[in-house]
């Protein structure tokens, strides 16, 4: 019996199993570790001339921790879904949300590549995209403010009165216009940035 590093070797191996099994449910991970411990203990009983080399041989035959654990998800009935790769659907959604709002928004909500919060932001800022904006502007020009001018027969201005909100000061109005007209594009850019490129989806089933 000359295995001065037996405990060290075994603990090191079990630690690698534990690390590799980090994604498994705790119960499955602990069960696997218990099985490995029992196996090693059993193998050592059968190992008549225990040396560091024979311990290494036991661990070697058990297999690479990654290989053993890789077997576990399938064998334990846990199927991690492959990472979702954004594609045509997402590109179409980003382009259509500002320009063809209803279609774009449907695509946006169909895609699993965005968190629901981002989908909500993409949907309501601005509501309706450019189509929605033009409605808002139309409504604004018809009901928001209107001016009546009274002229005499020669065309001289007699009276001019406006109802509704007075015009905003120049700079603010320009900024507001940029923000308003830019908002569909800003929103689309935000969606493009928030795409979860290749991030794994939620695992569906845990045993």
């Amino acid at each position: 019996m000359t295995a001065p590093h037996a405990d060290q070797l075994i603990d090191g191996y079990l630690a690698r199993i534990r690390a590799a099994a980090g994604d498994l449910p705790a119960a499955a991970r602990n069960e696997l570790l218990d099985d490995m411990r029992s196996h090693i203990a059993e193998a050592r009983v059968h190992d008549l001339e225990e040396t560091d080399a024979s311990i290494l041989n036991i661990l070697d035959r058990l297999g690479e921790p990654a290989t053993v654990v890789a077997e576990a998800p399938d064998r334990l009935g846990i199927h991690p879904s492959p990472p979702y790769r954004p594609g045509f659907l997402e590109v179409a959604a980003v382009i259509l949300v500002p320009f063809l709002w209803p279609v774009g928004v449907i695509l946006l909500w169909m895609s699993p590549a965005w968190h629901w919060r981002d989908k909500l932001i993409g949907t309501v800022i601005p509501p309706g995209g450019y189509i929605g904006l033009s409605y808002i502007l139309l409504a604004g020009t018809t009901t928001g403010s209107s001016c009546t001018t009274i002229r005499d027969q020669a065309g001289h201005l007699l009276q001019s009165s406006c109802t509704g909100s007075p015009g905003l000061p120049g700079v603010v109005a320009v900024l507001w216009a940029i923000l308003l007209f830019g908002s569909p594009l800003i929103s689309a850019t935000y969606l493009a940035l928030r795409l979860r490129w290749g991030s794994p989806r939620q695992t569906a089933a845990t045993a």
């Binding site: 099985d35 297999g63 690479e64 053993v68 064998r75 334990l76 009935g77």
Partner: peptide, 16 residues
């Protein structure tokens, strides 16, 4: 060939 892979298999058989 990889002895350790038997244990996840046994776990599943038991669970099933």
């Amino acid at each position: 060939t990889t002895e350790g892979t038997l244990y996840p298999l046994l776990s599943r058989l038991r669970r099933d």
